[in-house]
Amino acid sequence: MARLHVVTGKGGTGKTTVAAAMALSLADEGQRVLLCEVEGRQGLAQLFDVPPLPYVERRIAQGPGGGEVFALAVDAEAALLEYLDMYYHLGRAGKALEKVGAIDFVTTIAPGLRDVLLTGKVYEATRRKAHGRLAYDAVVLDAPPTGRIGRFLNVNHEVAGLAKVGPIRNQADAIMGMLRSDVTRVHLVTLLEEMPVQETLDAVEQLEKIDLRIGSIVVNMVRNSPLDDDALALAVKEKLPTAELTRGLKAAGITIGADLVETLATEAHDHAIRVGLERENRDRIDALGKKVVELELQPEGIDHGTLFDLAEELRHE
């Protein structure tokens, strides 16, 4: 069963929110879930309204199912020092490396190396055992956006040109093995708008080409239309029956201005056009043949409460 859930999406689609809601939804009674971020943005701390997360796994919330959610902000430099110390017992030399800016340099100039370090930490946490069982029942990764996800997850390839042999190379091979296995699923968050949908389609193609498995497409911020399909069809053609609307408004006791009917019909027309575009985009998503999950728009924005509502929505999927 999949235990490592990688969540990506175009910027602005609510990728971090969905990753957090997914972590909460996976935390059933007695379960432990780790939620990781890797972009140094402290997005999780903001979302859960806690002080900035250190490079330490700490409990951040209890899922609606009763399990525990831990959070970790993975930092490439800290991960490299940790790695060097674990395998080479660096001590003084590690400090020296840091002091001359070597760690910063190596992790910055070669994004491939940086990504091996970031995914390497997630890999380690996913496999970790404690007290004879897995330390985490599931790990959710708030990954880089769709524009970068292919490179980020294709650690093997990205590092191949840089390190042909040696421990980093072996590490990259091991990580890639897990990412390609049944343990891992990549979920893509999108809105029903042109750019995010296009990026989702591009990313799915790219990810499948490198043998990664797609979990679900999460369509976020879905707004349900109060108009039924017949009404939408009429509204698109600007043919809503104004006589009925006039009678309806009168029956409802609304007697504002003569052009109200016209204004409402125009609003319905604009709305119907947008719904039409959204449906075209939805069709493009459906054509992928993947599992699609819808999350409703939270008109007041995301806070602790709405995050749990979203988690509940995901739990029922």
Binding site: E244, G248, A251, A265, A268
Partner: peptide, 11 residues
């Protein structure tokens, strides 16, 4: 009465 008007008003 007039579900269409109600829908347009909700919109």
């Amino acid at each position: 009465k007039s579900p269409l008007t109600a829908a347009v008003l909700r919109l």
